[in-house]
């Protein structure tokens, strides 16, 4: 039986060929925290994007007259579990604030803004960081000046400067783009231009290492232009650190925006974001802890899930860990 010669042309590969991305996906899937994180993050995104279309209450509606007295300061429905006399309204699942505005509705709308700020600032910072990193790594003459610039930015005390800058430009931009649009542009820009440094450093290091490899030499020897070189050969190879810093960038951006809102330097007063909702609720948290709890929980959960996704991505994109 065992003596039968194996003819080579009859051997078929037992498994279909695997692409690199399939490997990465398989590794990512095996990271339980990352899968949970991705699921929760997608759920939150879906909730705040689709939620306001489905939800029945208008988050900005302020009741007047007798309605105001009836509707203000209602507690969440679940308060009934331990306090039968609590003032609740079944149409307002998480209760209302001191002006009678629906809290769940405001959380959903606020989440849209917080997440939008996070994503936009992340895109800006990643684009900026990648550009500076690639340019500094590829062109030797620009390396020194650009890295000194990065060091300079790292040496700036960022939060104080952010606060000052918000104060400086808020009114001017509000005049140009309206109070909401102006603040949005301002915060996204500020967070973006103060958080690109890590990405730039990592990308520069990777580009410097790649430049010594043979395929780059080969590409150069057939006369590839620097632009093509960067877009065709370098960028695809530094994608993985960029993706990791992009995910982690969302988390920092969301936290920074909430911190600014919390310190009173964020969006205008009647414009909810998670940080703003938390800040507004702090004064009366002894009576209405839920108003602090929900926005805080949402911020923390979002950031936590994003951090886990970043962790999983880092493992999945690292070929030394993959396949173990």
């Amino acid at each position: 039986m065992t003596d039968a010669p194996i003819s080579m042309d009859k051997v078929e590969p037992t498994a279909p060929p695997r692409s690199q991305w399939a490997d990465i996906w398989a590794q990512f899937r095996s990271h339980r925290g990352a899968m949970w994180g991705a699921g929760i993050f997608l759920f939150i995104v879906l909730l705040v994007v689709a939620g306001p279309f489905v939800y029945w209450n208008d988050p900005q509606f302020v009741p007047t007259g007798r309605d105001f007295l009836n509707l203000r300061d209602t507690r969440p429905i679940y308060t009934l579990l331990w306090d039968a006399d609590a003032k609740v309204n079944w149409l307002y699942p998480l209760g209302t604030d001191n002006l009678g505005r629906d809290i769940l509705g405001r959380l959903l709308i606020g989440g849209r803004i917080s997440l939008a700020v996070g994503m936009a600032a992340m895109v800006l910072s990643v684009v900026l960081g990648t550009f500076i990193g690639v340019v500094a790594g590829y062109f030797r003459t620009l390396d020194g000046p650009l890295m000194r610039l990065t060091d300079l930015f790292l040496a700036l005390p960022l939060l104080p400067l952010l606060l000052v800058a918000v104060l400086l430009f808020r009114d001017r931009l509000s005049g140009m783009f309206g109070p909401e649009g102006g603040t949005f542009i301002l915060i996204v820009t500020l967070v973006g231009i103060t958080s690109w440094m890590q990405t730039a450093r990592i990308v520069r290091g990777d580009v410097l290492a790649l430049k010594e490899r043979e395929f780059i030499l080969a590409a150069r020897s057939i006369g590839t232009s620097p632009t093509k070189m960067i877009t065709r050969h370098l960028l695809p190879n530094v994608m993985s650190p960029i993706m990791v810093s992009a995910t982690l960038g969302i988390a920092t951006a969301i936290i920074t925006e909430s911190a600014l809102s919390f310190l009173g330097f964020g969006f205008p007063p009647d414009f909810p974001t998670w940080g703003k909702l938390l800040f507004d609720a702090v004064d009366r948290m002894e009576l209405y802890p839920e108003r602090v709890l929900w926005p805080g929980l949402l911020i923390s959960l979002t950031v936590l899930s994003v951090n886990y996704v970043g962790d999983g991505l880092r493992d999945a994109l690292d070929p030394r860990i993959r396949g173990r």
């Binding site: 936290i255 602090v292 929980l297 923390s300 936590l304 951090n307």
Partner: peptide, 16 residues
């Protein structure tokens, strides 16, 4: 991870 992700303005308020 939690300590990383929970911003101080929430954890502070929570412990209060």
């Amino acid at each position: 991870m939690v300590g990383f992700s929970v911003p101080p303005f929430f954890s502070g308020v929570l412990v209060i």
